[in-house]
């Protein structure tokens, strides 16, 4: 690579050509993910009410669970931002602490969501019950699967941080995974609004 002069204020993750290209590429991937989730939302919104005589969201959605999930995920997005802040201040310890908290909150979110899904299934609302519930489980489940993959990904990066410390490569990976994590909370805003709020207010 040609050597480029980076200003001392440039964060480490931007201090390599790979870093800059990969971060940009990931933003574009997020654009594609927006297209993906919008298709899932479109499907969901069109299938609202099509419960084939079975149970519907108005009976099953509970505000408390939704609020807990929302605040767990939102807070985890905040703590993830703090983790990057510490990373940019060259604090490996701060990065580990706040990423760890982020993961814990993410696992908490997943736990509540799995519990929620199991509860619905026990109440007779499963993927196979009706078009509405197929759409619900695939939309919210896809988001949950993304969160799961994000947690696994961040764990892999924590291992690499332990092995190598803060380098242009490891900071790049942390930053990109943080973009992914924040993005999942942005998607959740719309799930909260179009699925849960809509479902409870209808």
């Amino acid at each position: 690579m040609e050597s480029v002069e980076y200003s001392p204020n440039t964060p480490l993750e931007y201090q390599s050509e790979t870093g800059r290209l990969n971060i940009l590429g990931f933003w574009i991937f997020l654009g594609a993910e927006i297209a993906l989730f919008s298709t899932l939302f479109a499907t969901y919104l069109v299938l609202v009410g099509r419960t084939a005589g079975g149970p519907g969201p108005e009976e099953l959605f509970e505000l408390s669970g939704v609020l807990i999930e929302t605040f767990l995920l939102l807070t985890s997005s905040f703590t993830c931002g703090l983790a990057i802040h510490y990373m940019r201040n060259h604090s490996l310890k701060g990065l580990f602490l706040w990423l760890g908290i982020t993961l814990a909150l993410g696992l908490g979110f997943l736990g509540f969501e799995i519990y929620e899904f199991v509860h619905y299934i026990h109440e007779g609302a499963a993927l196979t019950t009706s078009a509405y519930w197929s759409a619900f489980f695939v939309l919210v489940g896809t988001h949950g699967a993304h969160v799961t993959m994000g947690i696994a990904w961040i764990i892999l990066i924590l291992i690499q941080l332990k092995q190598r410390g803060l380098t242009p490569d490891t900071t790049r990976k942390v930053f990109i995974s943080s973009l992914y994590w924040h993005f999942l909370d942005v998607v959740w805003i719309f799930i909260f609004t179009a699925v849960y709020l809509y479902g409870m207010v209808m």
Binding site: T43, L127, T129, A131
Partner: peptide
């Protein structure tokens, strides 16, 4: 997996 997005029954479109 038996979902009903596009089926003729159970609410699919």
């Amino acid at each position: 997996f038996g979902s009903h997005f596009f089926t003729m029954m159970d609410g699919g479109m």
